[in-house]
């Protein structure tokens, strides 16, 4: 009912003044032409390139984010590696120092021991030498004393005539001996 009325009014209202529900075939045709023209031209100049640019940019941003993420992970790994390496190096250095210190200590004690031994040996050698020399000298002295005694005895035997002479002789030889 109402639709029919509206339709009648719309038809009646057609013409120059027109009603709000007046359908104008010219406008319809121009709308179709305009819209399809706009669709085609915008599809060519706008939608394709702009949507492509948007997609490109979105993928670029996504890629960049992913890249940044991997770079961050790499850097973190690198830092961890560095830290570990440094710790290792420090350990190594400490080990080397300790080792060398130990070695030096050992060397020192060894050298010390050796030199002590040598010194002792030298002292011992010297002592035995002295002993030997002493003994030699004593033996020589003993021989000499014996010789002198024998010689003096010979002389005594040769000149054993009187007591005076004997005493004189003994005295003389004793003097000789003491002069010696």
């Amino acid at each position: 009912m109402i639709l029919a009325d509206l339709f009648v009014v719309a038809l009646a209202g057609g013409g120059e003044s027109g009603g709000p529900l007046d359908v104008n075939p010219g406008v319809i045709l121009w709308t179709v032409v305009t819209f399809i023209f706009l669709l085609l031209i915008l599809k060519k100049i706008a939608w394709k390139p702009i949507l492509n640019s948007l997609k490109e940019r979105e993928s670029f941003i996504k890629e960049s984010l992913e890249k940044a993420e991997t770079a961050k992970k790499d850097a973190e790994k690198l830092i961890a590696d560095n830290k570990q390496n440094m710790l290792k190096a420090e350990d190594e250095a400490r080990k080397i120092i300790n080792q060398s210190r130990e070695y030096a200590e050992k060397l020192k004690s060894q050298i010390l021991g050796e030199s002590k031994l040598q010194a002792k040996k030298m002292i011992d050698d010297a002592a035995s030498e002295i002993e030997r020399k002493n003994a030699e000298a004593f033996n020589k002295l003993k021989d000499q004393v014996a010789d002198i005694a024998i010689q003096s005895a010979e002389k005594i035997l040769r000149e054993s005539l009187d007591k005076d002479k004997q005493i004189k002789l003994v005295k003389k030889y004793l003097d000789d001996l003491s002069n010696n």
Binding site: M1, I2, D5, L6, S17, G19, P20, L21
Partner: peptide, 15 residues
């Protein structure tokens, strides 16, 4: 009907 008359009248008046 009354509604439609109002609408019709308004449209008539409008045009």
């Amino acid at each position: 009907t009354s509604d439609s008359t109002i609408v019709t009248d308004t449209l008539k008046a409008a045009s």
